[in-house]
Design a protein around this nucleic acid. Sequence first.
DNA 1: GGATAGTTACTCGGATACCATGTGTCCGAGTCGTAACGG
DNA 2: CCGTTACGACTCGGACACATGGTATCCGAGTAACTATCC
Lengths: 162, 162
Amino acid sequence: MKMSAGVEWSLHCCTALSTSARPVPVTKLAELHGVSQTYLAKHMQALSRAGLIHAVEGRDGGYLLSRPGAEISVYDVVQAVDGPEPAFRCTEIRQQGPLPATGEACKVPCGIAKVMAAAETAWRDSLQAVTLADLAATLDSTSPGAWDAVRHWLSGTRFDAP
Amino acid sequence: MKMSAGVEWSLHCCTALSTSARPVPVTKLAELHGVSQTYLAKHMQALSRAGLIHAVEGRDGGYLLSRPGAEISVYDVVQAVDGPEPAFRCTEIRQQGPLPATGEACKVPCGIAKVMAAAETAWRDSLQAVTLADLAATLDSTSPGAWDAVRHWLSGTRFDAP
DNA sequence: GGATAGTTACTCGGATACCATGTGTCCGAGTCGTAACGG
DNA sequence: CCGTTACGACTCGGACACATGGTATCCGAGTAACTATCC
């Protein structure tokens, strides 16, 4: 089981976006994090399709969070990039073979599927409890002023710093 | 993020093994669940390497649980088949780009990595709380006598039923 | 000086190759049960 | 009748192809800002 690296990139980018009131192009985001521009663009498109961010077109355009960072959970981002389907998918092999489960027992989901689903629910709940604003606040507490530097850099080449 | 189908197969097989005191060959397990013998064999090898089951060689051999089903958690099986490394891997992109995190901030793990790790811990804890014996008991409560049928079938072609 | 049309540069968006990992299969090494054989 | 030996069949174990999805890239469509021109 491997999660796409795009999830990590997207989380960092969305957290950065949550601190910027101005549209930020993919070029900037990729350079800031030192990752591939084109591949990051692919994931940003996924976030855009999911409605988490929206694009400002044209020159000086870029991406902007659709909602405040406090209203976007980490799970929202993970789901947008990684897809909504659960990692474990029951293929109902209990209905196969020489001793298939009877229609009676199949009324309820497979016990194994239930356990796996419960675990994924716990995982999802844990991610839903954290918002982008929480992430930003955490970083801000460990290294104060970091976001100011990011904000300053994001707008650095466009107009001079005050 | 996709989990290997072998996880589902392995869980079903291990649960079946937990009800059998006799070695069960892969051939039987695959036929019972209606899956590929050779591919299932691959996953059973992984379980064997992990020490969850051990092979009885030679004729009338097969696989046997190394420990009682009550002492093997669902997570043990998942980890054996799926691998121990977590789904989310922090690549420390905070240290890249024009504004890398300073050595001071890197003393503590990345906030995003911490959140993802906490979620995976919740997932793991959920799976560790359930044992193979629990799974067997659940199925037994929904369709009583099912395991007797399985036990009977597993030894069916080898010696006559009582 | 102000409005306007043209130009330019920059942005996103989808369609297109490449590669690692999961999926599926095969054959060989080793071992136990069985049966034949000899004492 | 009992012990030995050879055989055979069955088991696991690792090494070998194929397919799917993540990884990475490119180029085209569209838009807003800027500039130069004209009134």
